[in-house]
Design a protein around this nucleic acid. Structure first.
Length: 312
RNA sequence: CGCGGGGUAGAGCAGUUUGGUAGCUCGUCGGGCUCAUAACCCGGAGGUCGUGAGGUUCAAGUCCCACCCCCGCAA
């Protein structure tokens, strides 16, 4: 079965890797064009491209999937199946309809929950204790296609975006293999998504990353780990500088203080304890503006943060 | 040439503007206090101030030049 793989970041690479290592016939990898990234705006190839080139899989980076150019490429590759994992663009209908066995997508949530761009982050931020992988047939809508297989993955308090992302990437790869196996065996039984239960996991914006200390410790804890290590939740120190928070923990509510404004530093013992709704959070690791990652205590040592300072 | 911050003791920082004996907090080592301590007190060790036998100077962490490295933002 000739498979065309479409995907871009690390998350997608795991699926490509699994396909490759299981001996599937991958006719090509389609990925986003190299983009100027990082300091100095150097052109950076994405994870899928790097892996594909390493394995001598032909790589294509079309600017658009619409139009003749990609259509003719499709015809020449003539895949029987297209596998899409975090590609980054919607597929036009003519592409969706091209392969004999359709287009299969690997999505990082238990659909119909968390459709959209940031299912992993949103699941953590919302305090879910369970998420997973869903494979599905693709259709016009965003993550609305008929579901094929699911694998559940537990979210523990120790998980942050990075750890959960890595787990789901591997899990996604395995679920994909399993789905393709069933496809070949003819034992797939697609099931419709219940649109009434659908939720949407919007892309993470800057606004999502600002810590609101009038929320509960648990909510702040979830936000911080859901955005760690990228793009990171942040707050502002009294001097107005941005302080990114890499990790924190919920303090026991028994050290809650009465009459202290949310965002107030109430202790520097073992970290930076900041008052919030119903308790406090202890900030453990930070990235100050213009600096690298460091322990909260190191930050306090050099920067003169005092009890009574207010973060906002 | 995207914008910007930085390289000073094991860690985090000050000192550079206005050159003149290298400092703070923490850690570490030793001693003291204490029933005890991560608490407190006293004392010590530890630095070619990124590199260049570079330039200016009586004198350079500080001013000038060149190079190397690290990081933040933005995408």
């Amino acid at each position: 079965m000739k498979i065309l793989f479409m995907g871009t970041p690390d998350f997608a690479r795991e699926s490509l890797k699994a396909l490759y290592e299981s001996g599937e016939e991958i006719v090509a990898a389609v990925t986003q064009p190299d983009k100027p990234k990082g300091r100095g705006y150097k052109l950076c190839p994405c994870a899928v491209k790097i892996y594909a080139e390493e394995k001598k899989i032909p790589v294509y980076q079309p600017d658009t999937l619409k139009g003749e150019e990609f259509s003719s490429l499709l015809k020449s590759l003539s895949p029987d199946l297209i596998v899409v994992v975090s590609y980054g663009k919607l597929l036009p209908e003519n592409v969706l309809e091209f392969p004999k066995y359709g287009c299969i997508n690997v999505h990082g949530s238990l659909l119909p929950k968390y459709r959209g761009a940031a299912p992993i982050q949103r699941a953590i931020i919302n305090g879910e204790s369970m998420t997973g992988i869903t494979t599905m047939y693709m259709e016009k809508g965003l993550d609305t296609g008929d579901m094929l297989q699911k694998t559940e993955v537990e979210i523990s308090d120790n998980d942050n975006f990075e750890t959960l992302h890595d787990k789901l990437a591997l899990c996604g790869a395995q679920t994909l293999l399993s789905t393709i196996k069933s496809l070949k065996a003819g034992t797939l039984s697609p099931s419709k998504q219940n649109d009434n239960e659908a939720t949407y996991a919007a892309k993470i914006e800057k606004n999502d990353c600002l810590i609101d200390f009038s929320k509960t410790a648990r909510e702040i804890f979830n936000l911080v780990r859901g955005l760690s290590p990228l793009p990171l939740a942040f707050t502002h120190t009294p001097d107005g500088n941005i302080l990114k928070v890499v990790s924190c923990e919920c303090e026991k509510t028994d050290n809650m203080q009465v009459g202290v404004a949310p965002g107030t530093v109430i202790s520097l013992d073992g970290g930076i304890c900041v008052a919030c709704e119903g308790g406090s959070v202890k900030i453990l690791e930070v990235i100050p503006q213009g600096k690298g990652r460091m322990n909260a205590q190191d930050f306090v040592r050099g920067r003169k943060i005092f009890v009574g300072d207010i973060f906002k």
